[in-house]
Amino acid sequence: MNDRKENKAKSRRDFLQSTARYTLAISIGGIGGLVASKSKTGDYLWQIDPFVCTQCGRCADECVLTPSAVKCFHAFDLCGYCDLCGGYFKPGVMDLNTGGENQLCPTAAIKRNFVEDPFFEYTIDEDLCIGCGKCVKGCSSFGNGSLHLQINQDLCVNCNQCAIARMCPSDAITRVPASNPYKVKGDFIKSNT
């Protein structure tokens, strides 16, 4: 008698459990299906829009990596090859030479090479670059803006929520399709939005 009662309770419990199980399975599947059908899917990476960037300097500090995955990129096609480069020299510099007192870059990551009178080529040593954007500010304020910040996708760990994007005051960091992972100046045309 008691046994039968127990058995009955057990089968009732089993029934309830399996009902709950299949309801949950259907709802998980439903959520998955809804998400997959309703929103866009695809692989995305984080990238900086150099036309929106205001070079606040947070990229150097906020990235989860040290040094930051943000590096300075140089669009040579846009460079004026100036002798007095606003991205290379501190403001108010007297002698145009590579002395430590003249360089804007805190880690001396920009190399200045003589091309021909009066032109100089500027290249970035990525190992030294910390992504502080000081040179970018100088170049876009006083020059062509050929120096610009980009996230080096080789270094970026593609966090679920980019720590720099969260702190970016101008919302310049957005997700871009993995098929087109850079917004390098020159290739990439300023959007009017």
């Binding site: 501190k90 108010g92 007297m94 002395g99 430590g100 007192e101 360089q103 805190p106 880690t107 001396a108």
Partner: peptide, 30 residues
């Protein structure tokens, strides 16, 4: 020091000092 140099551009000694300090700070960082 750089500000001082900009006021007193001919101070070679200061310039040398800045260069050494600059190198030192960068070394320290890395």
């Amino acid at each position: 020091m750089v500000e001082r140099l900009q006021e007193d551009t001919s101070n070679e000694e200061l310039k040398e000092e800045i260069r050494q300090l600059d190198l030192m700070t960068r070394n320290a960082y890395f």
